[in-house]
Simulated scan of single mutants.
Amino acid sequence: MSSLLSVAIEAAQAAGELQREHFGSDLSVNEMLQYDIKLELDVRSQQIITDIILKHFPDHAVLGEEGSDGNLQSTTEWIVDPIDGTVNFFYGIPHFCVSIGVKEKGELVAGVIYDPIQKETWAVEKGKTPTLNGKPIRTSSRAHLSDAVVTVGFSKSREALEASFDRYKRISVEVRKTRMLGSAALALAYIACGRLDAYIEEQLSEWDIAAGKLLLLEAGGEFLEQPSRTHEGKLFICATNGKIDLTEYL
């Protein structure tokens, strides 16, 4: 295991322990938005992650949902979502995670997704088989939509919601089941280990998907990424197990 991956695991699990300690307790809200919630715990979690990363690599850049730190000119960038699934966390739904991806010269080289409730750690390095709690994982072998379990994300604007509802209506009648779970990173991790078969969402940020993208690709999946058609600066993604074809729903 590389030093980058070991530090990513250390940081993700440290932040996750803080989240598990506070899950179900009264929470301080920094900002309540129509389709999102910003918690004080998001900020504290990212600070824990940042402190651990910069203790080991003081010259690296940390780019996160709650701000940036370190040497922002560095060619090594840590892409951090301290709580992916904050709304779930706030409402007491035990489906959220810490997501940390590492880029070197613009290329993803390592990633960790940690679910502190289930105590599940997905870890990956470029060119190596990804793992879940140390055991190798692969995407599912399901190749037909009629056998597939697909998740469709519903994003944070009216335009994205309308596009997602239209896509959901078309997909849901073709697949075995659909799921809406509320964490992009965990959706990608679930495809990587065969629990889900595909995921589409209209409006995401890089920190939502950095670790999950590498995890999925190294597990045998496929990942399509385009500029969002409903929000400038955001991303549209379509992730699959590498066998399901969702071309007509893009």
Results as ranks from 00 to 15, higher is better:
1 M>F: 08
2 S>D: 08
6 S>L: 05
8 A>V: 00
9 I>A: 00
12 A>K: 07
15 A>W: 01
17 E>G: 02
18 L>S: 05
19 Q>I: 06
20 R>A: 04
20 R>S: 05
23 F>Q: 06
23 F>T: 08
23 F>Y: 09
28 S>Q: 11
29 V>P: 03
30 N>T: 09
36 D>L: 08
40 E>C: 04
43 V>T: 13
43 V>S: 10
44 R>T: 08
53 I>T: 01
60 H>C: 02
60 H>K: 01
63 L>S: 05
64 G>E: 11
64 G>Q: 10
65 E>F: 09
67 G>F: 08
73 Q>E: 14
74 S>V: 00
75 T>G: 02
78 W>Q: 00
80 V>I: 15
81 D>N: 04
82 P>G: 05
83 I>A: 01
85 G>S: 09
86 T>I: 07
88 N>L: 02
89 F>L: 07
90 F>R: 10
91 Y>T: 04
93 I>C: 04
95 H>F: 15
98 V>D: 04
99 S>G: 13
100 I>F: 04
108 L>V: 02
111 G>V: 01
115 D>L: 05
115 D>V: 04
116 P>E: 07
117 I>P: 08
119 K>D: 15
119 K>G: 02
119 K>C: 06
123 A>D: 07
125 E>G: 07
127 G>N: 03
127 G>Y: 01
128 K>I: 08
129 T>M: 11
130 P>A: 07
137 I>K: 02
138 R>I: 04
140 S>N: 05
140 S>M: 07
141 S>L: 12
141 S>Y: 07
149 V>L: 13
149 V>G: 07
151 T>K: 03
156 K>Q: 11
158 R>Y: 04
158 R>H: 09
160 A>R: 10
162 E>A: 14
163 A>N: 14
166 D>W: 11
167 R>F: 11
167 R>S: 12
167 R>A: 14
173 V>H: 12
175 V>A: 13
175 V>G: 10
183 S>V: 08
185 A>C: 11
187 A>S: 15
188 L>M: 13
189 A>G: 09
193 C>L: 03
200 I>P: 14
200 I>Q: 14
205 S>C: 09
206 E>T: 10
210 A>W: 01
212 G>F: 07
213 K>L: 04
218 E>W: 03
219 A>I: 01
220 G>I: 06
223 F>I: 10
225 E>P: 05
225 E>H: 09
231 H>M: 15
235 L>S: 11
236 F>E: 12
236 F>H: 13
242 G>T: 07
243 K>A: 13
247 T>F: 13
248 E>Y: 05
248 E>L: 12
